[in-house]
């Protein structure tokens, strides 16, 4: 290693990830799921909106791999086409919750004092709000001008689920900012931006990443719950949550319309969690 200057934490992390099988496996899965969300027609030629009641609850066949549901719709086609809305809601609401949690947690942890007191109490209050109840009210209010309700559900989930991430971030920042290496940098004359982004953030982000990847899974599932309760997606929307909600009532007659969207949901969540794990580990030099 003669080129010492060009090495950085991100560069080293990438070198490490390139040899990580779990990273590749979960990365390929995530790429596949994203592709499915963007161009679902690549994966199925069937139209998810064309349903023939004559096919009601038919089992798997060469034309419909996962069979037909109660309405006579192709389960495979609907599952593939449902990826987009499920992922949109899951990713965007998690992104929103992540940004909010990161900002609130870092501000509370770094500034302490009054800022911490106000932000922490705000977090407590949000934590005390029952998620589903608030979401039903909130999302119902928002959804009227938007036909499919993706925006309303995303905003609702994002605004209600940032609390865990904020708390984890706050405590990690408090731990990191009292470390000697932060004092050493301060002594050298480092400004607050350098202290936060070079020293505190890299050393406090790990548990935040874990919380966020788990939140992605719970938010995709929460969309399903909201849709089931009638406060989520509606209109022409197709999503795993809606599919699961509809198939629940007929599970004993036909399991396939319930099982396959659930499997897709579980695999998606798992893929993102594994990807998050691999990335987090790669950014910890001690684990290399």
């Amino acid at each position: 290693m003669s080129d010492t200057r060009s090495r950085s934490l991100a560069g080293d992390a990438w070198t490490d990830l390139r040899h990580n099988k779990i990273f590749w496996a979960s990365g390929v899965l995530v790429a596949l799921i994203l592709l499915m969300a963007v161009v679902p027609s690549l994966f199925t030629s069937a139209d998810p909106a064309v349903c023939t009641l004559a096919n009601q609850n038919q089992g798997p066949s060469s034309t419909a791999w996962f069979g037909y549901d109660f309405q006579g719709c192709d389960v495979f086609a609907r599952t593939v086409y449902g990826t987009r809305d499920s992922l949109e809601v899951g990713l965007l609401s998690t992104l929103l919750a992540g940004v909010l949690g990161l900002i609130v947690g870092m501000a509370a942890g770094w500034f302490g004092g009054v800022v911490d007191a106000v932000l922490s109490r705000l977090t407590d209050i949000m934590l005390g709000v029952p998620l589903l109840l608030a979401a039903v009210v909130f999302s119902g209010r928002l959804s009227s001008p938007f036909e499919d309700g993706v925006f309303a559900v995303t905003l609702t989930l994002g605004l209600l689920t940032w609390t865990a991430a904020a708390r984890v971030m706050r405590s990690a920042v408090i731990t990191a900012k009292s470390q000697d290496y932060v004092a050493a940098a301060r002594m050298l004359g480092a400004g607050p931006a350098r202290l936060v982004f070079r020293h505190v953030l890299p050393n406090s982000i790990a548990s935040f990443i874990v919380v966020i990847t788990i939140l992605l899974g719970t938010n995709i599932a929460a969309e399903a719950t909201l849709s089931y309760l009638g406060a989520g997606l509606g209109g022409d929307a197709i999503s795993w949550g809606l599919q699961i909600a509809e198939a629940r009532n007929y599970a004993r007659i036909a399991a396939s319309p319930l099982v396959w969207p659930s499997v897709f949901l579980a695999v998606t969540v798992l893929a993102f969690i594994m990807l998050g794990d691999a990335i987090r580990d790669a950014f910890d030099p001690k684990l290399r």
Binding site: T4, R7, S8, L9
Partner: peptide, 11 residues
């Protein structure tokens, strides 16, 4: 504790 574990020694 006085060296940032996520920085190279050069950094």
């Amino acid at each position: 504790t006085s060296l940032n574990p996520r920085m190279t020694v050069g950094d």
